[in-house]
Design a protein around this nucleic acid. Sequence first.
DNA 1: CAATGTTATTCGATATATAGAACATCCGAT
DNA 2: ATCGGATGTTCTATATATCGAATAACATTG
Lengths: 273, 273
Amino acid sequence: MMTKRQTSSSPRELAKAMETSKAPAISRAAAVMRLLGKSDAPLGVQSVARELGLVPSTCLHVLRALVAEEFVSFDPDTKRYSLEAGVLTLARHWLRRNQFTDLAQPTLDRLAQSFGVTMLGVHIVGLDHIIVVAIAQSGQNLQLSTQIGSRFPALISATGRCIAAFGDYPEARLETKFKTLRWDEAPTFEQWQTQVKQTRAQGYAVDDGNYISGVTVVAAPVWKARAKLSHALVAIGIGSAQRSGLSSLATALRSSAQTLSNQLSGETLLEWS
Amino acid sequence: MMTKRQTSSSPRELAKAMETSKAPAISRAAAVMRLLGKSDAPLGVQSVARELGLVPSTCLHVLRALVAEEFVSFDPDTKRYSLEAGVLTLARHWLRRNQFTDLAQPTLDRLAQSFGVTMLGVHIVGLDHIIVVAIAQSGQNLQLSTQIGSRFPALISATGRCIAAFGDYPEARLETKFKTLRWDEAPTFEQWQTQVKQTRAQGYAVDDGNYISGVTVVAAPVWKARAKLSHALVAIGIGSAQRSGLSSLATALRSSAQTLSNQLSGETLLEWS
DNA sequence: CAATGTTATTCGATATATAGAACATCCGAT
DNA sequence: ATCGGATGTTCTATATATCGAATAACATTG
């Protein structure tokens, strides 16, 4: 039985992640890297230890190991630690073998152009997070933007309703996670459930200013294998400018997502010939 | 005293990295991620364990911890593991706070155009590896290419001669590392030392077909703080086509590298005003 | 320049992560 | 179907990674 776990970026979550694990050093290492990533300046041993609730000596061991693996850099003069380029190498490998980004990019570009919105391809990691893996901007002047690699809570906004609708998670877990979310205009859990139900019926989700007021978000689910939610296409538009064409945008999104799902679950071209 | 360590990507190096460490789980985790990154297909517990010389049960713990941290994904159907998008998030953070890439990109573009070569910005991690962090291609038809995040042995090719010339490492360590390199047309250590000396005199290094026959590589060092080698600009050209303009390319590279060094060691714009 | 707080680091006792074998489960071949 | 070989997973004794205090190096202040 696989015990439920959390990614560790705060002392609280780190503690939770470690208590069940048989390899806590790895959770600590992950927490340290995420902390160094978030930090604007390099950090010393104490800062890291205090922030994460670690024992300084242990923290030092972790940092030294990460330095040896070239994931963290160490400045002997200032005795400060920061992220090192080694993490780039891992990311490159991941990108190389990720067909979703390749397949989705043209679609995202096209939709961004046609509808004048910012389009995202997001990877659904689980009930905890989604990660932006592809971006397309329209030529519009005013644009919302984010970066490849950004993480968001899984259940937030339109994508969240897709995950709830098609992810096949028990309602209790959904409710627990839902309660931790921060919205500009939070819906009640009941309202949200209604919207999730609607999402299931329509095949796409809409967030009309809930997550960020004045911003409309539309999302449609992408499946990797049959019945296995893995990604989503997301359109982000500013305010009411969107509202007129919303339904045509939504159906375009849905059909594009459907096409992608078919391509992803089918055999690859190499195995084809 | 900081003990010398190695990054772990083979069973041999992993063993070496672990024996001195106080956090071997982290070395194992790094090795596992690198292995999964290199692999073309997702791997099972046994494959990973065998490849890295780990005990299966330990390997399982490592993999589970990495899954929990969203660095590795697990397919419950096939029981296979592969890299997960979480590594992207770390890479984004690293890129965000790396001024070298921002500063270097325009320079690289310009040089690539002017001389019709492929330009790289590389990050010097130590005596073990360099990592490609920025790329610019010329419009030429025939082009050598690589990817952001690629790792190369530190002492190879023209960059290697720069590191040897300006890195201030003891000769014994250089020779040990030098002996592990693979070249198309390997120079002897004595020949190489002469070239290193020349590099120190000229302020740039040339590799004329040693690393890859028919390929000329020129590199110039970039310092972050005074006397602290951190990056290099690299030009890659195919064969003799380059040779004519080689010295003008080299001096252009050297002066660009010099300018970058000044920008990097000077105060940032924000602290300026 | 001493005093004081802070930080990095070492070191030894002990809680615990790991190794190895045992068990369970899957898959292909006979 | 049945076997055989491989895989994934659990279990437990023990080598060891972690903790906490003590030390050393450093910077900051009176």
